[in-house]
């Protein structure tokens, strides 16, 4: 029961950031330099988080060696930007990357 209250507390804390964003966004114009800058900051933050998860994972992913994680990523990326149809794009990339990761898991887990 306490656990559920802690979840609710974390939810309120999380929502506070979202609400704060709404409050502050009122004065921001899309054609302003501030908007360009905050967009750069956000992209860098999201990329930082995502690459941290891949490079320095915690939990299950940490049991797969770094080269194997990077290989799965590289294969998916190549398929994503592959210039010839039909084996290109988001879905084929996701399927290839996660299938390869399943194979790695078979071997390393």
């Amino acid at each position: 029961m306490t656990e559920l209250w802690l979840v609710i507390a974390a939810a309120l804390g999380t929502y506070a950031w979202r609400a704060l964003g709404v409050v502050f966004s009122g004065r921001v114009r899309t054609d302003s330099e501030f908007f360009q800058w905050i967009s750069c900051v956000t992209y860098a933050m999201v990329a930082g988080l995502v690459f941290r998860i891949v490079m320095l994972p915690v939990g299950l992913l940490a049991q797969i060696p770094l080269w194997a994680r990077l290989l799965c990523l590289a294969v998916a990326l190549v398929i994503m930007v592959w210039p010839y149809r039909p084996f290109r794009g988001l879905f084929p990339g996701l399927i290839a990357g996660s299938s390869l990761m399943t194979v790695m898991g078979w071997y390393y887990l």
Binding site: V46, A47, V50, F51, I53, V54, G59, L60, L61, I64, R69, C72, L73, A76, L77, M80, L90, G93, L94, G97, S98, S99, M101, T102, V103, M104, G105, W106, L109
Partner: peptide, 17 residues
């Protein structure tokens, strides 16, 4: 385990792509 691993990996993969 390998399937759970693939599920966990899908999220960062989606953003990178």
């Amino acid at each position: 385990g390998p399937l759970t691993l693939a599920l966990v990996f899908l999220n960062p993969l989606f953003f990178l792509l």
